[in-house]
Design a protein around this nucleic acid. Structure first.
Lengths: 245, 245
DNA sequence: CGAGCAATTGAGCATGGTCAACCAGAGTGG
DNA sequence: CCACTCTGGTTGACCATGCTCAATTGCTCG
C-alpha cells in the first residue's frame, strides 16, 4: 500500500463485504490465531464491512455499544464533548486499531472518520461468544486493551504537564512512530487531521498549534510542504523537546 | 470498616500473609468465581500480603513488571515523572483496584502508598497460568481493564479541556462517588492525599488547588474541617460546575 | 513554647487563549 | 478564463487564567 493515499482511488479494489472481511485483521492481527475455520466462519456471519467518507460518524457517545469495530484503513478520531462545545479528542486510530471495546453498555466516546475509512464491524455478542469458545481470542484482546491502557499514561502526562511546544513535538514524534510501525518513512508524515483536531487532541487551540508548528519550523526541525504533510528534518531535536529537554 | 480510619490501628487484625490473602479480593471480587479450591490454593502459593506505610513505593516506573497488586486497604497513587521533576499523578487507587496490570515487561508508572496501605501481591506468571487454566478469570480481568479504559476518557477531558474550577469540582465529585461506592457517606469526604498530589493529578499547582478550594468554600458548596477532610454542602452546585455549567 | 511542615494568601508575570485581520488553495459561476 | 467565495490555516494584538515567588498562617509534635 502506498503511503499518504487516502483518496477515493484506494477503494477500487474493495468489493463485497464478504471479501473485505476476509482480508480484515481478524486473521492478520493473529486475533483468531488457533481458531478453526468453523469459528471464523461464524464470526464472519456477524461481521460487516463499513466504508465511510471523511466526517461521517462511526459511533456516538452514549449509544448502545452493540458493535465493535476494527479500522482497516484510513484514520478515525475519537472525542468527547462538553455541553458548551468544548471538545477533547481522545485518540486517532489507524488500521489495526479496535474501537468500541467496552464492558459498559454505551460507547464512551464519539468516533468519526477523519479520512475515507474502511472498518470491519463485529456484532459484540458474536465476538463475545467467540471469546467464550476460544480463550486465545480473549487473551489477545486483553493484551490489546492492556497495551492501550499503558499508552494512555503518556497521554495524561502530556495533557496535564507538558507545554504547548512539548505537546506538539510529542505529537509529531507519535505520528512518526506510527508511520514507522506501518512501514512508511519516518521523516515524511501524513497529517490527515486538521489543526482543530490536533488542538483538541493536545488540549490547545488551533492558533497555538499553528504558532507552535511555525516555531518548530523556524527552528529548522520540520518543514511543511502542505497542510496535510510535515517533513521531519531534525528528529533528535523533536525528541529532546518532547520530553522537556 | 469505619470510614476515614487509615491509621495504624487498622492493622491490628492483619496477621499472617496466608490469612490476609484469604480475605483479599481474589474471592470477594468474584475474580475467581467458579475456580475450584485447588486453583485458589495454587494462586495463594504465589501470593503475598504486603503492608506499606505512607510514602513507600509499591513499584517503580521501568522496573520489570513481575508482580500484579490488588489494593486491600488504604490509598495508592500512581505517577509518572519528567526529567526536570514535573509529575503527573495518573490515578488514586483504593481497595479493590489492581495495579501493575500490563502486557509489557515494565511498569509504566511509579506506585506509592499515600496512606498506610495493604496489598496482595501476585506473581504475574502465576496469575497468567490461572487465567490460562480458568478462562473466567481472564474474562473478569478483561472487564476490569475495559472499565478502566472507559474511565480514562473522562480524565483526558478533564486534563485537556477543563478549567481549574471545573477540575477541582470534578475531583470532589469523584471522591464523593467513590465514597458512596464503599458505603461511606456521600457528603463527608476523606482526602488522604495532600494538595501537591491533588495538583499533580489535576494538572494544576498546589496554590491553584488551594485557591480554588477556598473559592468553592466561599461559594458555600463545601466546608473544610481540616486538611484531610472536606464536607460537601451543595453537591448539585459541584456537579453543575464540574461539567462546565 | 518553638521547630517543622503543609496549606493559604498575595503580588506580579507568562503561557496560552481570544478576537480579529489576513492569506492561500480549491471549487463555483458568470 | 477569471473573479468570487468558502474553507482552513496563519499571524498579530491584547487579555486572562493559572503559574511563580514570597510571605504568612495554622497544626502537630517535640
Amino acid at each position: 500500500m502506498a503511503p499518504f493515499d487516502y483518496g477515493p482511488g484506494r477503494w477500487k479494489n474493495a468489493s463485497t463485504a464478504a471479501q473485505t472481511c476476509l482480508s480484515c485483521d481478524v486473521r492478520s492481527l493473529t486475533l483468531c490465531h488457533g481458531v478453526p475455520d468453523d469459528g471464523i466462519r461464524r464470526l464472519q456471519a456477524a461481521t460487516q464491512a463499513v466504508s465511510l467518507i471523511a466526517g461521517q460518524p462511526v459511533v456516538r457517545e452514549g449509544e448502545p455499544a452493540d458493535h465493535i469495530f476494527n479500522v482497516t484503513s484510513g484514520t478515525v478520531k475519537l472525542y468527547k464533548l462538553m455541553a458548551d462545545g468544548r471538545r477533547q479528542v481522545t485518540g486517532f486510530l489507524q488500521d489495526g486499531s479496535f474501537l468500541g471495546l467496552s464492558h459498559a453498555n454505551a460507547y464512551v466516546y464519539t468516533a468519526e472518520a477523519v479520512t475515507q475509512v474502511m472498518l470491519c464491524r463485529f456484532q459484540r455478542k458474536a465476538l463475545e461468544a467467540l471469546m467464550d469458545e476460544f480463550p486465545t481470542v480473549r487473551k489477545k484482546f486483553l493484551e490489546i486493551v492492556m497495551d492501550e491502557l499503558a499508552a494512555v499514561e503518556d497521554q495524561k502526562l502530556l495533557l496535564g504537564r507538558k507545554t504547548a511546544l512539548e505537546k506538539v513535538a510529542s505529537f509529531l514524534i507519535m505520528l512518526s512512530d506510527r508511520a514507522v510501525l506501518r512501514g512508511h518513512p519516518q521523516h515524511l508524515l501524513s497529517v490527515p487531521m486538521g489543526r482543530l483536531d490536533i488542538g483538541d487532541y493536545l488540549g490547545l487551540t488551533i492558533e497555538t498549534v499553528s504558532r507552535t508548528l511555525t516555531q518548530i519550523k523556524r527552528a529548522g526541525a520540520i518543514s511543511i510542504p502542505d497542510n496535510s504533510h510535515i517533513r521531519i528534518d531534525d528528529r533528535a531535536y523533536l525528541e529532546r523537546i518532547s520530553e522537556g529537554g
